[in-house]
Computed example of a mutant assay.
Amino acid sequence: MPLSTSDRSLMEPVIRRLNMLKPLSAEARASLEYAMFEGLQRAGTGEDLISEGDPVDSVRVVLSGWLCRYKTLEDGRRQIVNFIFPGESCDAHAFLLRVMDHSIATMTPVVFTEIKRPRFESLVGGNPTLSEAFLCETLVNNAIQREWAINLGRRVALERVAHLFCEIFERLRPVGIVEGNSCVMPITQMDLADATGLSVVHLNRILQELRASGLIVLRERALTVPDFNALKNAALFSPSYLQLYRRG
C-alpha cells in the first residue's frame, strides 16, 4: 500500500538526517519509510522508552518530539548524557549489546518507530548506503558524547550552556525545525541543569547572564539567538564534530 503524503512528511526528518550523512538511493529511502511505517508508536511526556538494564531487541527512531539519555545515581541524582531529536535513532546498533547501560526518556510527547532486530538487519543488509548512513549516525553520536565530556570537564558554566544551545540549533537545523534564528525549547530549567551538571540556581544565573549579554532570548518555550556567531564565540563552539557538511 502506498504511503500517504502525511506519512512521508512525518518520516521526513529521518530521511533528511540520514541523507545528510550519506546520500540515500530512492530504493533505500522507500525501504526505510515502509519499515518505519510498520512500527509507528506514540508516547507521552515523562515516559521511559527503555530503562538501564533492559534487554535490547529493536531500533527506535524518533519522528517528532524530544527525548533524553540519562543515568541516575543511587541517591536519585540524574545526569542527562545526551538529547535525542527528531530524525535521530536511539542507538541503531544497541541491540548488539546484551542490555542497555542507560535509560531513554521522553521530554515531550513523541512519535517514534520501533524496528525489530531481524527487520532492521534485513533492511540495512539489502541497502549498503542505508547501512553506512546508520553507521555514520552512530559515529556522530560518539563524537557528541566526547564533546559533552569536554563540556562537563573543561568548559566554564557560561561556555557550557552556550555550547549546548549552539549544538541544539545545529542538530535541529538539518531536519527543518529551526525557523530563522529561532527554535523550539520545550524543556525545563531542571532538564538543562541536569544536562550541564549545574544546579538549577546556577543555571538560572547563567541564563540571566546570556540574556543580559543579548546572546539569547528564551520566551514561551522558544529559543532565539540574535547573533549565532556571537553565541558560537562565547561557547568556543565548532560544529565540525556533527558532520553537517556532506563529503559524499
Rank of each mutant, 00 (worst) to 15 (best):
Y241T: 04
L172Y: 12
V225G: 01
P226N: 06
L97R: 10
R78H: 08
M190L: 11
Y34C: 01
S240K: 13
V184T: 11
F134C: 06
I115K: 01
T106L: 09
R98P: 06
N19D: 07
A105N: 09
M190F: 13
I50V: 09
P118I: 01
G248Y: 14
V200Y: 10
F134L: 09
L67W: 03
V111Q: 04
V81L: 11
F83W: 09
D57A: 15
L236M: 06
E137F: 15
S25C: 08
T106N: 02
L63C: 10
R155Y: 15
C166H: 02
R211E: 02
E47I: 15
A35F: 03
L139Y: 12
E52V: 12
N233V: 06
I177W: 09
L135N: 02
E209W: 14
H93S: 07
A143W: 00
P23G: 06
I15N: 01
R17F: 15
L223I: 09
M190R: 09
E88D: 04
L3Q: 00
S199F: 15
A43V: 10
D191Q: 05
S199L: 13
L198Y: 02
V81Q: 08
I168P: 03
M20K: 11
F228K: 11
S199I: 12
K71E: 04
R146D: 08
E147H: 08
D194M: 13
D191C: 14
G46A: 02
A35I: 11
A43R: 06
K22I: 04
A26S: 05
F112Q: 01
V225L: 11
A235G: 02
S4H: 07
P226K: 10
S25M: 04
E52K: 12
F95D: 00
F83Q: 00
D101L: 15
N181C: 14
S182R: 11
E179K: 14
F95R: 08
A149N: 11
I50T: 05
G46L: 15
L21I: 04
I177S: 03
L164G: 01
I206W: 07
S199P: 05
Y241C: 07
